[in-house]
Design a protein around this nucleic acid. Sequence first.
DNA 1: AACATGTGTAAGGCTGCTCTTACATATGGA
DNA 2: TCCATATGTAAGAGCAGCCTTACACATGTT
Lengths: 110, 110
Amino acid sequence: MDAVPPNGDRLLHMLGALANPHRLRIVAALASRRNYVSQLARDLGISRPLLHMHLQRLESAGLVSGVLEVSADGKAMKYFEVAPFTVALTPTTVAEAASTLTPDPPEAKD
Amino acid sequence: MDAVPPNGDRLLHMLGALANPHRLRIVAALASRRNYVSQLARDLGISRPLLHMHLQRLESAGLVSGVLEVSADGKAMKYFEVAPFTVALTPTTVAEAASTLTPDPPEAKD
DNA sequence: AACATGTGTAAGGCTGCTCTTACATATGGA
DNA sequence: TCCATATGTAAGAGCAGCCTTACACATGTT
C-alpha cells in the first residue's frame, strides 16, 4: 500500500490528467463501479466524443484502463475501471519528483 | 500531520497549479530554502516575468506564500516560501473531492 | 546623473486543451 | 430493410495557458 515514488515526468502526466473537473468526476464514477463508455457519458451528462477524449487522457496517465468486451447480445462494449493509484503530494515529495524531471529542450538548431 | 479533506474545487486548483514542470521546480526550490523572485529566476534559468506568473498561480492555490521585505541595503524584495500542504491522491480521495465540485454552469440565458 | 539592483505588469504571439458536430462502422431485433 | 445500440475519429471553433519583449517605478552606489 506504499506510495511508489513517481518519476517526475510521470507525476506531471498524472497531475495534468487529474486537473480537470470532468476527469475528476470520471475517476469518481469509475471508483464506485466499472462502466462502459456510452453509459458513462449518459451518467455524467456529457457527449460521448468528449468523454472518449478524457478517457484517453486518463488512460495514458495510467489512472484508468479499458477493456473491450462483447456483451451477451453481441454488442462490442468498452469497459473502463480505475487503476489503484496512490500519490502523496507534499513539498518533499514534489521536490523529489522535480529532481527527476527531464530537462528543458535547449533549442532547436537551425 | 493529517491530510485535510479538500474541497473539490480547491483540489482542482491545486492540481492545476502543480501540473507544470516549471512550477514543480519552483516548489522544489522553495522547499529547500525561501528565496526572492529575481534570485529564484536566476537559479531556475527562467525569465523573471515568467516566474512571476507561475508564482502567482502557486500562491493563488495556496501552495506558496510571499512576503515583501526590505533588505539591509534598502531594496524591496519579495520572499517566497512553500506552504506545508499535504494531499493524498487515490481513487477514493478523488471520489470524495469530486462529490463536492461546483456543478457546471447550465447555460447563459438569452 | 547614470548604473545596478529590486519590484510589478501590459501587450502580443503561439500552442495546446476543450468541446461540438459530423461522419464512419458493426451487431441484434422489429 | 430500417432502427437502436455500441464503437472510433476527423474537422473546426473558441478559449486558456505559456512565454517573450517592453515598459513602468523605486532605491543605493559610483
